[in-house]
Amino acid sequence: MNAIATFALEKFYLTGFWRKHPKQALKPLTLEVPEGEIFGYLGPNGAGKTTTLRLLMGLVKPTAGSSKILNGTIEDPAIRAQIGFLPEQPYFYDYLTAVELLTYYAQLSGVPAGERQRRVASTLDRVGLAKDAVHTQLRKFSKGMLQRVGIAQAILHQPKLVFLDEPMSGLDPIGRREVRDLIASLKDEGKTVFFSTHILSDAEALCDRVAIVANGELRGVGAVAEMTSSLGGNMEVVWEGEGANEAIKALGRELRVAGAITRSVVPESMLNQVLDILRAKNARIISVTPVRATLEDYFLQKLAQTSGGAD
C-alpha cells in the first residue's frame, strides 16, 4: 500500500504587490511512496521541496492536482492523527518549556492523559535533549536544540508516517549522526519516513529510494543503488614512476602527481588499456580500487542535463 501518492500536484504562488505574477513553485508532480520506506526528497535550495511538503500537509492549497496520505486525505483529522511533521527551520511557542510544548502537542494529538508525561519524557530523551534543558523556555534554545524539539514533536504521538523538512539542518556532526540513526530506527519500527534535504550524503546513507527535484520539476526517482550504478563504475589507479604519465595524459585522463606517486581515475572500460601502458613503461602499480559512483554524481549529472537542455 502507498503511504503517499500525488497526482499531478501543482502549485503557483501569486507574487508581487498586487499578487498578479504567478510563479510556478511546483510543476505537476506524480509520485508514490510505499509504506515502510525511507524516502528522500532531494533538490537544491529553491527546488520546491518545502512547497511540496506544505501541499502534502494541507497547509497550502494546490493550484491543481491532488494527493493521498495513508489512502485518505490530509483534510481528515483521523489521517492527521497518524502523521508527524517537522517543518523547515521550526519555530515554536518560545514562552513554553520543551516539556510544556510537547505536553500541549500530546494533548492536541490525542495522547491519553495518563500516558502524556511518560511519552513526553521518553521522546525528549530519544532526540537527545539534555536533561537540564527540558524545563527551560524555548526562547533560550539554540538552533540545534530547537531542531531536536522539532523532531521530538513530529514523532511524539507515534505516527505511522513522518514528514521531515531538512531534518539535519542546524545540527552539528554528532547531531546529524544521531538524527540519522533515529530515522533509521523509525524504519525499524515499521514507519514510513519522507524527508527532504539538499545534503546528499544524508540521503545516500539512509534512503531506500529518492526523488530528485530541481526548479520545481521532478528529475528522477529510484533506488539509490540503481541510480549510482546507472552511471557506470570508475577505477582509481595509483602507480610509481613517471615514464607512463605522458602516455596516459594522451588518453585524456587527469593525473595527480605527488612526488614519485601518480594517481588517476579512469572508467572501467579503459582500465585494461591503462594497465597495459603502465606495464609497458615499467611503472610500478601500487593499487587499483573501484570508485563507487555517488548520488552526488547522479545528482549533478541530472542537474547538468536539464540546465544544459534548457539553455
Binding site: 490530509i74 483529522p77 492527521r80 511533521f85 492536541l108 494529538s109 522539532g150
Partner: peptide, 14 residues
C-alpha cells in the same frame, strides 16, 4: 507568521 500553526494544524485539530 512565525509558522507555529504548522505543527498545530497538522495534528487532528480542525
Amino acid at each position: 507568521d512565525k509558522r507555529t500553526v504548522y505543527t498545530v494544524l497538522t495534528r487532528p485539530v480542525q
